[in-house]
């Protein structure tokens, strides 16, 4: 299997896909990974120190930072055009609509 991969990895397709060059300068993936790990540990530590009821603002902020790192760099949204960006953002608007416009009706009944 290893031999086979060698032959196919020689870059024969280089000519048919000339746009490969633009990806040569890429974000520091491994550094971002380390950052993500640190943030994960941080959120666990916070949840251990702070009482469960007061932890959500902190841990969800950390989640959002982590999500943004992945979306912007790993999913390359930082480098995308308008079409892709809007395809990523519209769902978030809908999420917000569901959350906030449903809220007064759903929160008015206390669940048991």
């Amino acid at each position: 299997m290893g031999v086979k991969m060698k032959t196919t990895s020689k870059g024969e397709e280089h000519n048919s896909h000339p746009k490969g060059e633009e990806h040569n300068s890429h974000p520091p993936y491994v550094k971002i990974y380390v950052g993500l790990l640190v943030l994960t540990v941080l959120s666990v530590v916070i949840s251990a120190i702070v009482h469960r009821e007061y932890a959500p603002p902190f841990v969800f902020t950390i989640s959002t930072i982590k999500g943004l790192l992945i979306a912007l760099y790993y999913m390359h949204l930082k480098y995308e055009g308008r079409i892709i960006i809007s395809l990523a953002l519209i769902p978030l608007v809908i999420f917000a609509i569901i959350l906030f416009i449903f809220m007064p009706d759903i929160l008015s009944t206390v669940k048991q």
């Binding site: 569901i98 449903f102 759903i106 669940k111 048991q112």
Partner: peptide
């Protein structure tokens, strides 16, 4: 076990 039928109505009509 109070669920919320209104939630379905919202999701459905959305």
């Amino acid at each position: 076990k109070a669920g919320d039928p209104i939630l379905w109505q919202h999701l459905f009509w959305f």
